[in-house]
Computed example of a mutant assay.
Amino acid sequence: MTSAPTSSEGAITLHRDDLPDGLTFNGSVAVDTETMGLNPHRDRLCLVQLSAGDGTAHLVQLRPVSLGGRGYDCPNLKSVLADPGLTKIMHFARFDVAILQHALGITVQPVVCTKIAARLVRTFTDRHGLAALCRDLLGVELSKQQQTSDWGAENLKPEQLAYAASDVLYLHALWAKMDSLLEREDRRALAQACFDFLPARARLDLMGYEDPDIFAHRA
């Protein structure tokens, strides 16, 4: 376990290979991932970020055996992500759920997704990215400079750690805003139905049903 310097966003703790014994989350946990690419069958899951919404980000670096790591042998992390009593707050959960289920062999639920919520209630704009939502709803500016950096590196740079942490440190506050908007617009039940479907949607994507989408009508 390595404690990185406290950033302007919050405290960052880097864990190698798994979460430590005894670290628990209650009620909900913000979750994000960093990978070598966007194809779960080809591209390695490198980092999983978690936050309890308390200003601290826990980053789990999943190192391959070739780098002295344990691969995806991370029982503590798997237990948290698969806990049916713990709500996972994500942004673009469709991808994160798919890569986590594929790499770790677990079912990730229950899940809520701020991107789906934004698309349901912010129909006056097409800006549904995390940076745009944090700026518009929380007044927080997120840097995306490290988004396409090498997440498979053995030693991640402080700038990478800060970027990765920022993707989970604000999700609790953002979800609170989105949940309120869903209630206001009477779309909370519809959103919940979408969230409940995410593990199945991820399995369909992994089976190759992303394109063509089985829900699309084609002659």
Rank of each mutant, 00 (worst) to 15 (best):
T2A: 08
P5C: 05
P5E: 06
S7V: 04
A11V: 04
T13Q: 05
L14Y: 07
H15A: 01
H15M: 04
D17V: 04
D18G: 03
D18M: 04
P20F: 01
D21A: 15
L23K: 08
F25N: 03
G27I: 11
S28P: 04
S28I: 03
A30M: 08
V31H: 04
V31L: 07
T33G: 06
E34M: 12
T35Y: 01
N39F: 13
P40V: 06
P40Q: 03
H41E: 12
D43L: 01
L45D: 11
C46K: 05
V48Q: 05
L50M: 13
A52K: 08
A57E: 09
H58K: 11
H58L: 11
L59K: 04
V60Y: 05
R63K: 15
R63D: 09
V65M: 10
L67S: 15
L67E: 13
R70E: 06
Y72M: 07
D73L: 11
C74Q: 09
C74S: 15
P75E: 04
L77T: 00
V80H: 08
V80K: 00
D83C: 02
P84Y: 10
L86I: 05
K88P: 01
I89G: 12
H91D: 03
F92A: 12
F92E: 05
R94T: 06
R94S: 00
F95N: 02
F95T: 07
D96N: 13
A98R: 00
Q101H: 01
H102W: 01
H102N: 14
A103S: 15
G105I: 02
I106Y: 01
I106R: 02
V111T: 03
V112T: 14
T114L: 05
K115Q: 14
A117W: 07
A118R: 08
L120G: 04
L120A: 08
V121K: 10
T123Y: 09
T123F: 00
F124T: 14
D126G: 13
D126R: 14
R127N: 14
H128Q: 07
L137P: 09
G139C: 00
V140Q: 13
L142Q: 11
L142H: 08
S143K: 12
S143C: 11
K144L: 00
Q145R: 13
D150K: 12
G152A: 11
N155S: 10
N155T: 09
N155V: 14
L156P: 07
K157C: 05
Q160I: 02
A164Y: 07
L169D: 10
L169A: 10
H172E: 13
A173C: 07
A173P: 05
L174T: 06
L174N: 09
W175I: 10
D179K: 15
S180C: 13
R184F: 12
E185P: 00
E185L: 11
D186F: 12
R188K: 15
A191I: 02
L198P: 09
R201W: 05
A202I: 04
A202E: 03
D205W: 02
D205T: 07
L206N: 06
L206E: 06
M207F: 07
Y209R: 08
E210M: 13
I214T: 14
A216Y: 05
H217D: 10
H217E: 13
R218K: 06
